[in-house]
Design a protein around this nucleic acid. Structure first.
Lengths: 174, 174
DNA sequence: GCCAGTTTCACCCGAGAGGGTGAGGCATTC
DNA sequence: GAATGCCTCACCCTCTCGGGTGAAACTGGC
């Protein structure tokens, strides 16, 4: 995704228990932790001296507010373009603050416009091959909630089974 | 797939009831018709004056023999590279005969080496979002057979559910 | 002819998915 | 405050899938 952006960006996967990685900006998706986002970001910030850029599907003003208040230097929706992501990384690496107000225009990739943040999140995990129960575990919700999202997703993207949803999702940037 | 090949090739979808399409080479996958491939190819040949290039997963010598005997000007495995496909189209368009002996080296794309032709065929249809029953209908076999293939595919590519198989398949050229 | 691999099929059973209905709580907007 | 959309959850039921077992027929190579 970033390979086609203008500025050169090296991506280094960082895991929770990896405290030796040197990065300029830490990209962090608090999926499953949105309820206690403050605690989560405090933990994440303790792992690195690099500024933290939250990169997740949810971009509700409440999440943004709380993430920034928790010390994140930026917040960007996964629906933003790769160019926006690259420039967000640059802004944060330079010590600036990246708020979604600057990227609100480039909101979602084409075809995802009608999915809510949560629905997009669930579709992301479906495309990763996870079962409903695994997704429920990951997001700390009931499997009934996941089934509801799955139904809504299928209606919105016009499919009727999982394989079709995966194919759709992968064709649309998930 | 062909967009990245050297020679320029225009692809025109041709359906069974479309007898006005002008094409130089007719690409034809007799999926589901391998038992009566002769009859099928006779029908196909009646649709066009263009040479017929069979493009399918199965590349058993028996299928090749019978397809060429039925009038096909070429036979190419779907496992072949896009370059091979493009040059096969050129060969056939020039009036040549395209037999798999020339493309046997570039047999399957990476990662599909262990799938049989039938298994690859089934995975193709899974990636198209079809259910087991639909696949069975398409291939004129029992749904029990399809389940068996699905099991074998999952074992070979190391997945345990459909969504994972779709993602794997799409990542490997299906 | 023998052997291995492939194709095909059946059956059993539990797990997972999918479609439906209904409901309450929260955040945002007017 | 009311309306709307979203999130969350429950429950019902059916369908599909997935893992297992077993078996027969065919093809190609040795």
């Amino acid at each position: 995704m970033l390979a086609r952006s203008g500025p050169p960006v090296d991506v280094v996967p960082v895991r929770r228990d990896d405290d030796t990685a040197e990065v300029d900006v830490l990209l962090c998706d608090p999926v499953g932790h949105t309820v206690q986002i403050e605690e989560y970001l405090t933990l994440v910030a303790a792992l690195t001296t690099a500024p933290v850029l939250v990169f997740t599907w949810s971009s509700s003003p409440s999440s943004v507010r709380r993430a920034l208040a928790a010390g994140a230097r930026g917040f960007l929706s996964k629906g933003a373009s790769s160019g926006d992501l690259a420039s967000a990384i640059e802004t944060v690496a330079r010590g600036g603050l990246m708020s979604p107000a600057a990227s609100r225009r480039a909101r979602t990739p084409k075809g995802v416009a009608e999915l809510s943040a949560r629905e997009a999140e669930v579709l992301d995990l479906i495309c990763a091959g996870m079962s409903n129960l695994e997704i429920a575990d990951q997001l700390f919700v009931s499997v009934n909630s996941v089934k509801t999202y799955v139904r809504q997703i299928y209606q919105k993207i016009g499919v009727s089974r999982r394989a079709q949803a995966v194919a759709w999702g992968l064709a649309h940037g998930f």
